[in-house]
Structures are given as structure tokens and as C-alpha cells.
């Protein structure tokens, strides 16, 4: 539980950070809140020679809510997401999810960028970003590009980000007014990763579901956007049959590990229960 030695850098601009990363490609890692990286370093599963701490880069720490788009900087903490009333009004699932991440001390340090960037399948925000169809903004020596959250995750800890890029912000279309959403997460205790978790966002008009999105956490080596499950809801009255069809479609794409949280069979079963409950809660909140 003692990390190897490393050099610590604390740039104050994004260009400086990109420059440092470029000069140590392969030997450097980006540090923000540290709640994924530092435990990995203590276990010596990560052994960077250089740590580039981006917490001093002021530009990355803001939440901006426009008429149609929401931008969240990479170093925005989970506590900031919880405390923003404006964000909670237009996109309440971010507060609801953040409150289910670890405990208040960790949420004061843990960042949204860190949560989504490194491809840890246990993290909650990747599924939420897939739910919202968010874009990740990546900046590197060759400029800026965006990658869809739904296309970003390749395998556990493997993502579309290049080693010389920094994930600097997340942007997504502001959810429609009147939508309903919910994140149901079952875990063994505070601070644990999900045994199974599901996020649902939907709109209802005249008793019929007009749009739906479903995503799941920690049920495969990447977050899962459950397109077929969502399609099973669209056009339905969110009745028992439609929900059962969505649950079956969601379970069909899970591929969880058997671990201390339970065997794969249980976690797949539980994924369906979480999806069902999240649909019911989102439905109750819609309108």
C-alpha cells in the first residue's frame, strides 16, 4: 500500500498540462481528485513516473448551463454537482447519482472528469453520460476533438483517449423539461461499487412514452447503453409488458464478473430489477 516514487507537477493552464503530458508520454498520468488513481498507485497497479495535477487549472472547474447545452469542466467535483440548484432543476439525475457515489469526504474531492475518463467499469458517471448522450472534450497537442460517451469505452481501463490527451470537459444537450429520470444502484455498503445499477430517462406524453434512454453500471467491462431496452419502452404506456421487455433486453447485454458482490447470474438478475425500478421511478417523476 505504498506507491512507487514519482515527480509531481501542478500546472495552472491547460496548455502547460498538455505540454507536460507530451514531454512524458507513457510515463505520466493526470491527477484530479485522485480517488481512482491514488489507490491504484498504492497497489502499484499504476506506477507513473510523473503525476500532472490539474486541480489548479481554473478553466476546468465550472458548470455552465446554456439555453440548450450543459458544459461541465473536468475538475468539477461531485459535491459541486450536488450543490448546483440550477443543474438539479434541469438535469436532476446528476445530483441523484452523485449522492450515491462514495461518501461526502470523497465527493468533496472526486471529480466528474476523473470518474469518466479512465474507464473504470465500477464508476457511476460513465453510464449517466451514455444515458445523456454526452460528448467528451479531449485536448491534446494536435488540438481539440470530441468523442461520444457511447463510443468512448473500449474495455476496462481502455478508452478512446490517447495517452497525450486530457479530458477537459463534458457537454450534452439539456434534457427536455418534464422528463423523468432515476438512478437505482444497489451496493453492499457506502463506498462500494454497484453490484448492479441502472439509469433511466424518459418522456411521457398523453400516457405514452415518447423517448427513453437506459444505461447500466458495473455489469460488463464497460458501461452499457441499453438501446434495445429503451426502444422497448418508446411508444408504450410503460405497462408491465413493456417494462418486462425492457428488462429482458437490458439483461441480455450484461456480462458481469462473478466477484464478492455475487455470481454473474445474480448480478444479471439484479440488473433487471434495477432497470425495472428505475423505469417506474422515472415514470412517476415524468410530467
Amino acid at each position: 500500500m505504498i506507491p512507487g516514487s514519482f515527480d509531481y507537477h501542478r500546472p495552472s493552464t491547460i496548455d502547460e498540462a498538455i505540454g507536460l503530458l507530451a514531454s512524458h508520454v507513457g510515463d505520466a498520468l493526470i491527477l484530479a481528485g485522485g480517488h481512482s488513481l491514488i489507490p491504484m498507485m498504492k497497489l502499484r497497479m499504476a506506477t507513473p513516473e510523473h503525476l500532472i495535477d490539474i486541480q489548479d487549472i481554473y478553466d476546468l472547474s465550472a458548470i455552465s448551463i446554456g439555453a440548450n447545452q450543459i458544459d461541465i469542466g473536468a475538475t468539477v467535483t461531485q459535491a459541486q454537482l450536488i450543490h448546483s440548484e440550477e443543474l438539479a432543476d434541469c438535469c436532476p439525475i446528476l445530483r441523484e447519482t452523485s449522492l450515491q457515489i462514495a461518501d461526502p469526504q470523497i465527493r468533496n474531492l472526486g471529480t466528474i472528469g476523473g470518474n469518466v475518463a479512465n474507464g473504470d467499469p465500477g464508476n457511476d458517471m460513465p453510464a449517466i453520460m451514455q444515458l445523456l448522450d454526452a460528448d467528451y472534450v479531449l485536448q491534446g497537442p494536435d488540438g481539440t476533438r470530441t468523442v461520444k460517451a457511447r463510443a468512448y469505452y473500449e474495455a476496462a481501463y481502455f478508452t478512446a483517449r490517447s495517452e497525450n490527451e486530457i479530458l477537459t470537459s463534458i457537454r450534452f444537450t439539456k434534457p427536455a423539461a418534464g422528463h423523468g429520470s432515476s438512478y437505482h444502484k444497489q451496493k453492499r455498503k457506502i463506498g462500494d461499487y454497484a453490484t448492479a445499477a441502472a439509469a433511466v430517462m424518459l418522456e411521457v406524453s398523453n400516457g405514452s412514452c415518447t423517448s427513453a434512454s437506459i444505461a447500466m453500471t458495473n455489469l460488463a467491462d464497460t458501461p452499457l447503453w441499453a438501446e434495445a431496452a429503451a426502444n422497448a419502452l418508446i411508444g408504450s404506456a410503460l405497462d408491465a409488458d413493456a417494462i418486462a421487455a425492457a428488462v429482458a433486453a437490458a439483461r441480455a447485454i450484461t456480462n458481469p464478473a462473478s466477484d464478492g458482490r455475487g455470481p454473474a447470474e445474480y448480478r444479471t438478475h439484479l440488473a433487471g430489477i434495477m432497470v425495472k425500478r428505475a423505469i417506474e421511478t422515472a415514470h412517476a417523476r415524468a410530467g
Binding site: 444497489q186 453492499r188 453490484t195 458482490r261 455475487g262 455470481p263 445474480y266 448480478r267 438478475h269 439484479l270
Partner: peptide
């Protein structure tokens, strides 16, 4: 009697 074992019992 953790979650998955209790579920297994119920199942």
C-alpha cells in the same frame, strides 16, 4: 447473509 446469498435462498 449478504445480498446475493439471501437472493439465492429466495430463488
Amino acid at each position: 447473509h449478504d445480498h446475493w446469498r439471501v437472493w439465492k435462498t429466495a430463488q
